[in-house]
Every structure is written in C-alpha cells, then in structure tokens.
Nucleic acid binder design. Structure first.
Lengths: 328, 328
DNA sequence: CTGAAAGCGCTTACAG
DNA sequence: CTGAAAGCGCTTACAG
C-alpha cells in the first residue's frame, strides 16, 4: 500500500514549494512553465488536494446537507440534484443522514458547523426548538428544504396548494364521506399544510364528511389507516398524503372486495413511477424535487457570496390524472 | 453569527490545555475532576471536535462510501445500513455519489484516498481498469460491494444462484419461448451472472428458446425491451433483470392485450414493495441489502484493525412468490 | 512570479 | 495527570 501523496510531494517533484502548488490549485499567480510542470505531475499521480485540510482557508468549498432519511424517493432526487449542481460549481457535498431521528438531526447540524462547511442545506422531518436554535446560531448560511421556517430562507413545495387542488379534484366528484390518510403533525409541511389544503379543497366542493387519520410514512401504516377508515363506515374516497400510503389503501380495498374507483376513489401525492402501474393508475401529483435541490444549492451559494436571495421559494408540482378517482 | 468554537476555546474555559481536551476525546489520561469540567463545558456548547482536522491522528474515524447513484432503492438500503453500523461504532460516513458516471466513480475513489479516510466501501456499476488500479493502489482497506472483484474483498448478492432459482421456477412451468430483459454486460453482477443463472435454470427445466436483450435500468428501457421481444414473436414468459424492468413489461403487455400470467408469465428481481401491488402481484426475489451494508461496514472495520476477514461474503435472498407466473 | 513563515484545529510523543 | 512543542496537509499575507 503506497503512502498517500501530499501537496509537499507534488511540490518536491515539481521543484517548487508547496506555496506555489497551493496557488496553482487556488488560482494564484504561477508562471506558465511552472504551471505546466505542476499540471503534469498532478495528472500523473492523479493528485487532488485534501479538501478537509484547508483549515486555514476562508472557504472550505464544502456544503453540508442533512437529510431525514436516504430511503425516500423524494430525498434521493433532492440530494442527487444538489450534488449535481454543487459539483458543477466546484463544491463538495457532505451528506449527513439523520435516519429518522430528531436527535441525529440536531447532531448532524452541529457537527456540520464544526466541520467548517461553507453552508448548510437542511431537510428535517421536524424543526424542534433545539434544531431551530442550532440553525439560528449557525455561523454559516443555512437554507431549509421542504419545511416552512419563517425565521429563515426556505425552498418548499406548495403543499397547501397541491392539497387544495387534489381536495377540489376529488370534491368535484361529489363524495359524501372521505377518508384522509395522513401523517403526524410534527411534519408541518405534509402533516398540516397538505392536509389543510385537502380539507379546504373538499369544503369548497360539496363539503363532505371527512375522517382524517394520522400514521407514519410506511406501506403498513397506509394499510392500517385504510382499515381504520373502513371500520368507521363506508367512504366514497380515500385521499392519501403520499403515494406509498395509497399503495396500502389499494391493498386493503382489494381485500375488502371494493373496486377502485367504482366503489371508492383513491388519490395520492408523490407521483412515483410505480403509481402509474397500479390498476387502475393512481391519480396523484408530483412535486419537482429536482428543482428543490437545485434551487436550494443555488441559494446557499448565493448567500455565501453575499448576494440577495428570496426568503422563500416555492417549487411547482404536476397533476397526474390516473383512473383512480371516480368520474362525477 | 457566532464564531465557530474550537478545542482551544473549550480548553480555555476549562482552564486546561488543548492537549488535555484532546486526550479527553481520545480516551487518554484525564483526572476525574478535569474530565467533569470539560464534559460540562462540552455539553453546554454542544461541542464536538472537527473530525476532519485530525490530520495528525493515526486514524481519522471516517469511512468513505462511493455509490453508483442515490436514486436506487437498493443503494438507499445499503447506505442506510452502512451508516447505522458505522455510527454505532463511532465512525463517520462520507458518501460520494458517482451519479452513474464511471469518471466520477474513479474520481470519488481517488478523492476519498486523499481525504485520509480509514477505509473505503465502493459500489460501482463497472470496475474499469482505472478503478481497479485505484483500488489496488489504495493505501487503506477497500471492500467492494455488489460486484465480483476477484483481486479483493467483496460482499455480493448471490446473483447467479438467484438467477438460476428464478430460471428454474419459470422453466418448470414449461414455456417454449422466453424473453429475457437484461442490462449491459459492463455490470458483471446483474448483466452477466444473473442472466447466466437464469439461462442455466431454464436450461435445466425444458430448455426453452430464449430471446435475451440488454438495456439500461429504467422503466422506459423495460418497455422498449418488452416491445422488442414481442416483435420477435410470441413468448410464454418474460424474465426481467429488475422489478423496474418488469414494471415496463407489464405496461407493454397490457397495451398488447396480453394477460399476465395467462398469456405471458412475468418475473423480476428486487422485491420492491410496489411489486406486490401490481395486478397480478409480481413474482420476484429480494436481496438482503441491509445485510450487504452491514457486512461491508463490519468487514472494512475488521480490516482496519488487522483482523482476518473472508475474501468473499454472499448475502442471501428471499423468493417472493406472486401471481405473475403461470402455474404449470 | 516564488518562497519562508505563521497559522488553521487537531494529535501525539515526551517531559515533568 | 498535564503541558509545551512539533507536526498533519493545507492556505495566506508578506517579502523579495
């Protein structure tokens, strides 16, 4: 196992000082011939400076990203998009997975700060008081993704608007009783805004009775909630806070011998590829997660440069009409 | 924005030297009363040492992970599992996303090395000669995930065995002509081993004619290949290298008015949650990705400690019997 | 255009 | 049990 190669090694081989090599990498003055020599050696050894040893540098060129989980289609898209943008801008992306734990969420934020990243993108399930405190006392720019955060800079999906659109769409078909399969209110975006949108949308179109439930984000939770809805009496529609929950509803409805959409309409949020494959295809709605990642990354870089940025950016969604909601 | 707090600050407040604080964090000798004082201040300021400033330390306590993409269910599971294990062992996980690019794959490996990580877990789509060279010249332990790599230490899924089991399962139903929707051979595990397993399994049970195609991993690719299979004449079964490809096959079969499994059997690999929701539920097979992550992480840590490790570890799979393969 | 020197936040022998 | 000093791989004024 060869020894790790350092900037000093490169300097030696090039017959210069590491100061010069450093300048080479950071865009300082280097004579053309020297530059070429360094470039050649750098190429030969595939050398790249250790980004984390830039302790003295004003900027580390690394951006931290804390995500609530990696096991989510939406998060995957967001992180991929962030990585692409940042890579193109010469920044490193440092991903910290909170694995559904609020304590880890806080720890990740704190750790990122001591790691002297230039900025932080944080997507949290819940912004606890401790997290908020950490965000506020953060010495580098922070942008919050996917959750409202009035105190700071955010990029969010239009959860309320999307909910309302879906509520109205289903409401127009004239249901008498609707089940809402939701998530916990600690998730403000999905648990509250999205639900409120749905309720308002329904109210504007016939004002059906609504049985609103809360669970977690799993397939199993979707099944449990669907069962519970049915135990409370027949419904004409189930609106599910995520496609995954809708998958659970499909299964339970089938078990009960109920047809979609003839007996019960079903709608979701997420627009997963798989949703189009269900029978019938799920009526859902897809947020532009790539835009969220891109805009978040762009925004944090602007903040670092001291450029003005919008306090709040809202990404769009696309309505995906399936065949799972009854025609009116 | 408050200044970042450093070890020297903590030392000042505790009335000691940073040497002592460092020892506190690294398990050296510290008097009980001193320890308590440092602990208190550390707690108050939520201080954690900058893991990347441990330039002088023998061990950095960070493990690098390079993944081919973040947009994959399997990768998500593997990375989550790695993170959990490593966190429990006091290690940082540094994720590098190659975003489907072989050049980035190589760059990520190289960069990780200069970042003085203690070990590397690499999951690559293709082990190019350059990547192999990088792995071989790596000064820290490397374990390769999900791909065969005879020169090194690997944790792989039993692609051949799984393919053969699926081939045999379908073969037993007596198909005359079978379509195989595969991926490129540059992916040795899926593109070659899995396919070979399927072919061998089929051959042992009736030896049907096989139309084997190659594409990428997308839903659209599944559709294209399914179309191409049908253009070549009727088949009794389609075996798909991943569930996602099978999703595409379902769509195309439906378009052609062909029923699953009455007209055409379909089978996949992956065991996605969604696969059970298809109509009919997909017969598939799920690899234990969590085990792959866990074992990979455990193995690299053992290698770092100089403990003996198996050259090759094979993770198990579970057969998931759906209703998409005709009864014989 | 380049080098010597000091310093970033940490660790580690070595004295005491 | 603790501190002073040197050093990790890099950056950055400051001379020259």
């Amino acid at each position: 196992m060869p020894r790790k190669i350092t900037m000093a090694d490169i300097a030696d081989m090039a017959g210069v000082t590491k100061s010069t090599v450093s300048r080479y990498f950071n865009g300082g003055y280097v004579k053309e011939s020297t530059r070429e020599r360094i470039q050649e050696i750098t190429r030969e050894y595939n050398y790249e400076p250790n980004a984390f040893a830039r302790l003295k540098a004003r900027e580390s060129n690394v951006i931290g990203v804390v995500v609530p989980t990696l096991n989510s289609k939406v998060t995957s898209r967001v992180v991929t998009s962030i990585g692409r943008y940042l890579r193109g801008q010469g920044y490193e992306t440092l991903i910290k997975d909170s694995d559904h734990s609020p304590e880890l969420e806080l720890k990740n934020m704190q750790r990122l700060m001591t790691l002297n990243v230039d900025g932080i993108l944080v997507s949290a399930i819940t912004i606890t008081p401790e997290l908020r405190e950490a965000i506020e006392s953060c010495p580098v720019p922070v942008v919050v993704l996917a959750q409202e955060y009035p105190q700071g800079t955010v990029v969010v999906a239009d959860d309320y608007g999307a909910g309302r659109a879906m509520g109205a769409y289903v409401g127009r078909t004239g249901p008498r009783r609707v089940g809402y399969l939701g998530v916990e209110e600690s998730d403000l975006a999905v648990g509250i805004s999205r639900r409120q949108g749905v309720l308002d949308g329904l109210r504007e179109h016939g004002d059906p009775e609504v049985v609103a439930l809360q669970g977690d984000y799993s397939y199993e939770s979707g099944q449990r909630m669907a069962e519970e809805v049915l135990e409370n009496g027949p419904v004409d529609a189930m609106i599910c806070a995520t496609d995954r929950l809708a998958f659970g509803a499909y299964l339970v409805l089938e078990r009960h011998g109920l047809r979609v959409p003839e007996d019960v309409s079903v709608a979701g949020f997420g627009g997963y590829d798989e949703s189009a494959l269900l029978k019938p295809p799920l009526t859902t709605l897809k947020f532009d997660s790539y835009a969220m990642g891109y805009l978040g990354a762009e925004t944090v870089l602007k903040m670092i440069r001291g450029e003005p940025v919008p306090k709040k950016q809202i990404v769009d969604y696309t309505f995906i009409e399936g065949k799972s909601v009854r025609e009116r």
